[in-house]
Design a protein around this nucleic acid. Sequence first.
DNA 1: ATGGCAATGTTTCATTGA
Length: 258
Amino acid sequence: MQIATWNVNSLKVRLPHVLDWLAINPVDVLCLQETKLTDDKFPRAELASAGYQVTFCGQKTYNGVAILARDTLAMTDLANGIPGFEDEQKRVIRASVAGVHIICAYIPNGQSLDSDKYQYKLRWLSALVAWLKTELAAHPQLVLTGDFNIAPQDRDVHDPAEWVGQVLVSGPERAAFVAMQELGLVDAFRLFEQADKSFSWWDYRMMAFRRNRGLRIDHVMLSPALAQRCTSCIIDKLPRKQEQPSDHTPVVATLAPA
DNA sequence: ATGGCAATGTTTCATTGA
């Protein structure tokens, strides 16, 4: 089973990229973030033609998440949001696909350490971690994937010194990531030997992609039972090289049959 | 220190992202 995540930065603009990518990479599950579409505008028919069933939850301009699953697989238990956490922003959606419990998340950016948005990010992360504890107990086969807006370690940052004092690398954010690991979730990418300076996001500005000035902030985290089955996790940089790309590129994890 | 690039809204620039 292959599970991928991709922050597409507008599914309206990026639908052709997604369809092209799926044609080459027929993953079983693709989690999308920043669809930036209200539900009435979601391109359900186009994705159905490509062989994918969908569940989505979006809003105008900002946020928006979706899970695509091959239509040959059973997709059940559809829900969105973090239970008990009031949030107008559409950032979490979940579904069970062929018995694997998938949570697709777009964790807040935080803007800057002195921003209200940063406080919101920390509250949000706290709610997520508390909820994950019960989710993991209920669903031993669990994947948490998406745009975490957290670079877990300095090796996930092109120039750590340049990022000191900024969001995505702050102590409290990284502590939340560690808290997820302490619940048993495993950063699939780090199960394997990887090239130095592997990133999943590059700023549009300053030729950041060509200079590989990026961050690794998009993650696939696996419950212990699934980590045991994971045979690979790669970042696919090809979409980032295309015309009019998203600033993020897909991350793909492969699980061996149970 | 600042802005650089891209998407969105109803736009003629502001806001947000990371």
